Amino acid sequence: MEAEKFDSPFKGRSLLTWADYSPEEILQFLDYAILAKKQAHNKEIHQRFLGKTIALIFEKRSTRTRSSFETAFGEEGGHPVFMSTQDIQLGGKESVKDTARVLGRMFSAIEFRGFKQEHVQQLAEFSGIPVINGLTDEFHPTQALADILTLQENFGKLKGLKWVFCGDGRNNVARSLMIISAKLGIDFAIFAPKELFPPKDIQDLCAPFAKESGAKIEISDDISVVKGADCLYTDVWVSMGEEALKEERTRLLKPYQVNKELMAATGKENTIFMHCLPAVLGQEVTEEVFESSASKVWDEAENRKHTIKAIMLALI
Score class of each variant (00 low, 15 high):
Thr142Ala: 07
Gln143Trp: 09
Ala144Met: 04
Ala146Thr: 10
Asp147Arg: 06
Ile148Val: 15
Leu149Cys: 13
Thr150Arg: 14
Gln152Thr: 10
Glu153Ser: 07
Glu153Asn: 06
Asn154Asp: 13
Phe155Ser: 12
Phe155Met: 13
Lys159Arg: 15
Gly160Ala: 11
Gly160Asp: 07
Leu161Asn: 07
Lys162Gly: 04
Phe165Ser: 07
Cys166Ile: 14
Gly167Lys: 10
Gly167Ser: 10
Gly169Ile: 09
Gly169Lys: 09
Gly169Thr: 07
Asn171Asp: 13
Ala174His: 10
Ala174Arg: 09
Ala174Asn: 10
Ala174Val: 08
Arg175Lys: 14
Arg175Phe: 03
Ser176Cys: 08
Ser181His: 08
Lys183Thr: 01
Lys183Gln: 12
Leu184Pro: 01
Ile186Lys: 02
Ile190Glu: 04
Ile190Asn: 05
Pro193Gln: 12
Glu195Gly: 02
Leu196Ser: 04
Phe197Gly: 03
Lys200Tyr: 03
Ile202Met: 11
Asp204Cys: 03
Leu205Ala: 07
Cys206Gln: 06
Cys206Tyr: 08
Cys206Arg: 07
Ala207Val: 01
Ala207Cys: 01
Ala207Glu: 12
Pro208Leu: 12
Pro208Ala: 09
Pro208Thr: 08
Ala210Thr: 00
Ala210Cys: 02
Ala210Ile: 00
Lys211Val: 00
Lys211Phe: 00
Ser213Phe: 01
Ala215Pro: 01
Ala215Gln: 01
Lys216Gly: 00
Lys216Asp: 00
Lys216Thr: 00
Ile217Lys: 01
Ile219Ala: 10
Asp221Pro: 01
Asp222Val: 02
Asp222Asn: 12
Ile223Ala: 14
Val225Thr: 11
Lys227Gln: 15
Lys227Ser: 14
Gly228Val: 04
Ala229Phe: 14
Ala229Ser: 14
Cys231Ser: 15
Leu232Gln: 12
Thr234Cys: 15
Val236Met: 10
Val236Leu: 10
Val236His: 08
Trp237Thr: 04
Ser239Val: 13
Ser239Met: 13
Glu242His: 14
Lys246Ile: 12
Glu248Asn: 06
Glu248Phe: 00
